[in-house]
């Protein structure tokens, strides 16, 4: 079943058109990647889904039309978006970040269980719960962002460049975790990445964006073999 479907999505920033009609599908339970260079429209696509930029076209999530809904309402439908820069609530403590992740939920007992579950993925969190999130390293902030997103109990996780500015070994760790969460909980993930080789290892399907258009799409292993993808994005 397709959980998220984008049809002819066009978005403009003032006079500049950032998306020229994106078509994409994210099947439930899968990991899908959006690849492309800087300015290709990857981030804008995520922002259009979660209502942070105005767009035209159609964006269907789980049977709802979410185009141009307010971000808070999209979040309430079960879309957790870890934005560019990780959206860390820097002055709040680690624990408060996680509580904010569960802000929209009323089921207190389940939230408690989820806190334990999330701490299972990130065992360092309990020891540092009282620290302001600003004191965490970049990798830890990225993990906290994912943990915070999980606290929402999302149906769909949107990740914007989770590898940005992190050491390869940390990236490895984070990507393994994303894969594990996807496998164990069946969580659907749409990830934006500039690092194509990593993304193609992580995702089952991928879309390649160039200046606001989808220029290629397919299964990850297919794309990894594709000549032009290899030249432009994988560098060999």
């Amino acid at each position: 079943m397709v959980l998220l479907e984008l049809t002819q999505v066009v978005a403009t920033y003032g006079p500049v058109r950032a998306l020229h009609g994106i078509d994409a599908q994210v099947p439930e339970g899968s990991i899908v990647a959006l690849l492309g260079a800087n300015g290709a429209g990857k981030t804008t696509t995520l922002r259009a889904i979660s209502g942070m930029v105005k767009a035209t076209g159609r964006i269907r999530f789980d049977g709802h039309e979410v185009l141009n809904r307010r971000p808070e309402d999209v979040a309430r439908l079960g879309v957790a978006h870890v934005p560019e820069g990780r959206g860390t609530l820097a002055q709040l403590t680690v624990w408060e970040n996680l509580q904010m992740g569960a802000y929209i939920r009323r089921d207190r007992n389940r939230v408690k269980q989820d806190l334990d579950r999330v701490c299972g993925y990130f065992p360092w969190i309990p020891q540092r719960r009282r620290q302001p999130a600003a004191l965490l390293s970049g990798g830890e902030q990225q993990m906290l962002a994912i943990a915070r997103a999980l606290m929402l109990r999302p149906r769909l996780l949107l990740l914007d460049e989770p590898s940005l500015g992190l050491a390869p070994i940390v990236v490895r760790e984070i990507f393994d975790l994303i894969q594990a969460i996807n496998r164990e909980e069946g969580l659907t993930v749409l990830v934006v990445e500039q690092n194509a080789s990593l993304a193609l290892q992580l995702a089952r399907r991928a879309y390649v964006l160039e200046v606001g258009r989808v220029v290629l799409e397919g299964e990850s292993d297919e794309l990894a073999r594709n000549e032009s993808v290899r030249k432009s994005y994988l560098g060999y």
């Binding site: 942070m52 609530l89 904010m100 802000y103």
Partner: peptide, 23 residues
Amino acid sequence: RLGLAMRAAALYPESSRLLGVRT
């Protein structure tokens, strides 16, 4: 919970909206 959300909304309006806070 509400006080925490108000602090978050004041300091980080965009991130807070993504978490479902009606800023």
